[in-house]
Amino acid sequence: MSEVSAETCYNLSYFKDLMKEFRKIDDNIMLKMNTTDTHSKDACADFFKKLADAYQKREYVINKCLKILDAELEKKQKALDDDPFDSNLKNQMFVDESKRRMINNEFTVEDIVRERSLTVFKNKCRLFHIPKEFEDFINKRR
């Protein structure tokens, strides 16, 4: 996975587009499941790997952006501690905090998308059992 830059995180339109791109597999899951041999454990395993890779990419991007924004907010908070009357800095912090909340809200979207996709996957690929490590990955934030 390519490195996520601060520009990715500060440009919410780009961030949302990136997440949308990584969610294509979930958005088209019914079509993909209808064209997958769901009676083949191997075919289900291959599709599941693609699904799991997309989940991990999205999780990585969200966490990386939160770390980038947190570091920037921490720097700005220290600068504000030195000059508590800097209204320009306060405005910048407000904007950054808003971006951080919006990016953090992607976890809620992610939970909904995952639940929907995994329900479809489990109903179609009944022979395939989701690995425990993946179940742990899915449940780690709950």
Rank of each mutant, 00 (worst) to 15 (best):
K24V: 13
K49E: 06
V113N: 12
L31T: 06
C9Q: 09
F22L: 14
D83A: 06
E74Y: 05
L73M: 11
D83V: 05
D17Y: 14
E106N: 09
L89D: 03
K99Q: 02
F107T: 06
Y55T: 10
D26H: 09
K78Y: 07
Q92N: 04
D27G: 13
V61W: 09
L80D: 06
M93A: 04
C65L: 12
I68W: 03
N105Y: 09
A79G: 00
D42V: 11
R100L: 07
E21P: 00
D27V: 10
D46P: 02
M19L: 15
E21W: 05
Q56H: 13
R100G: 02
T108M: 05
L31Y: 11
K75Q: 10
F48W: 07
A52Y: 04
K75S: 09
A45G: 10
D81A: 06
K78L: 08
F47I: 09
D111C: 09
D27F: 08
K64C: 12
L69H: 02
D46Q: 12
H39F: 09
I62K: 12
K20H: 11
A43Q: 14
K99H: 02
Y60E: 15
K16F: 14
K75P: 02
V95P: 00
D111T: 09
D26G: 09
S40V: 03
L51D: 01
A52T: 02
A43Y: 06
A71H: 05
A52Q: 07
R100P: 02
E72S: 04
L69D: 04
N105K: 04
T35C: 06
E72Y: 00
Y60D: 15
S13N: 14
D37G: 08
F107S: 07
D82Y: 05
D70R: 08
N105Q: 06
E97S: 03
N104G: 04
F47Q: 08
Y55Q: 10
D17M: 15
K67P: 01
M93V: 02
F94E: 01
D96Y: 01
V113H: 12
N91I: 01
K20N: 14
F15G: 13
Q77R: 07
K50E: 08
K16R: 14
V95D: 00
N63A: 14
I68Y: 03
E21V: 07
M19Q: 15
D83T: 06
L80R: 06
I62Y: 01
M93R: 05
D27H: 10
N91H: 03
T108V: 12
I62E: 09
